[in-house]
């Protein structure tokens, strides 16, 4: 059973048949957090959505940033369904002089927050949670405004040969503007993993045997577009992960971040109290 989420709660329930392809939100956050820290940011303001995932992102970032020794100057929660203007939120956050702003919310409104923050004179950086898709944000906000943002690399830009092949056939089939998403890429690969695991286990009716066979079929050859190479005992698939930045008005090369050490340190189900 594949649960598509970056929330570790689904594999904490103890159902031995559940697997999930997206890695934990905390791990996705760790890329922008580390890069932001290396850039010298110390004071962070948070503008996260008030939806459930937004609240989780807020909790994780607070823990991760404080863990580094960073300071949190403002925490504002935005109800994207009812907000009419981001200026009041930004005015307040910018009055605390943050070095960087952490965002977690739908890509397009997040892009508007970035644009409006620049209008109000914010010169710092943006650390983006995994819901903010940088390629979609680039359609809304000008690249100059998006300077100094760092977030999760959009799947279409990942330097993985199989992913690039998938990207090309996705574009051929659905048009140039159709951006392949993490959702489609992960689910595509998981479907093949399940099929191969069924072959390996020699059964289509015994889910326990199929689940057990998963590790033996990874990676699934030409279909391993995101390169899932391992599934943990809790049911977490481990795959490649890249962060990406926008500097000088351009996307930088993706930065490869090995999930190995992170998962060794925190485990598949880490969630701060």
């Amino acid at each position: 059973m594949h649960g598509y989420t970056d929330n570790v709660a689904v594999i904490k329930q103890g159902n031995k048949l559940v697997v999930k392809a997206p890695m934990s939100m905390a791990f996705y956050n760790s890329g922008p957090v580390d890069i932001g820290w290396q850039r010298g940011y110390r004071k962070a303001a948070l503008l996260c959505g008030s939806h459930e995932a937004g609240k989780m992102a807020e909790k994780l970032f607070l823990a991760q940033w404080k863990d580094k020794g960073g300071e949190i100057v403002e925490v504002a929660s935005i109800d994207f369904k009812s907000v009419t203007d981001f200026y009041p939120y930004l005015t307040k956050a910018l009055s605390k002089n943050p070095d960087c702003i952490y965002l977690y919310g739908p890509s397009e409104p997040s892009a508007m927050i970035v644009s409006q923050a620049r209008e109000l004179g914010f010169k710092g950086g943006f650390l983006l949670g995994s819901q903010c898709k940088m390629d979609e944000m680039a359609k809304i906000a000008p690249m100059e405004a998006l300077n100094d943002t760092v977030g999760v690399c959009p799947v279409g830009m990942m330097p993985l040969p199989l992913m690039q092949k998938y990207n090309a056939s996705h574009k051929a089939k659905f048009g140039e503007d159709a951006i392949p998403t993490s959702e489609s890429a992960f689910n595509y690969e998981v479907m093949y993993i399940f099929a191969e695991a069924m072959k390996k286990a020699g059964t289509v009716t015994d889910p326990y045997k199929i689940r057990k066979a998963i590790n033996d079929v990874l990676p699934v050859g030409d279909h391993a577009i995101r390169g899932m190479y391992k599934v943990t005992s809790e049911g977490q698939f481990i795959s490649g992960y890249f962060a990406i930045q926008i500097l000088d008005g351009k996307f930088t090369d993706p930065i490869n971040i090995d999930p190995g050490p992170w998962y060794e340190k925190y485990g598949a189900t880490w969630m701060p109290e």
Partner: peptide, 12 residues
């Protein structure tokens, strides 16, 4: 009220 209240109390 929304913007001034948000500034001095909390935007949340």
């Amino acid at each position: 009220i929304e913007s001034i209240g948000g500034a001095y109390l909390t935007t949340n």
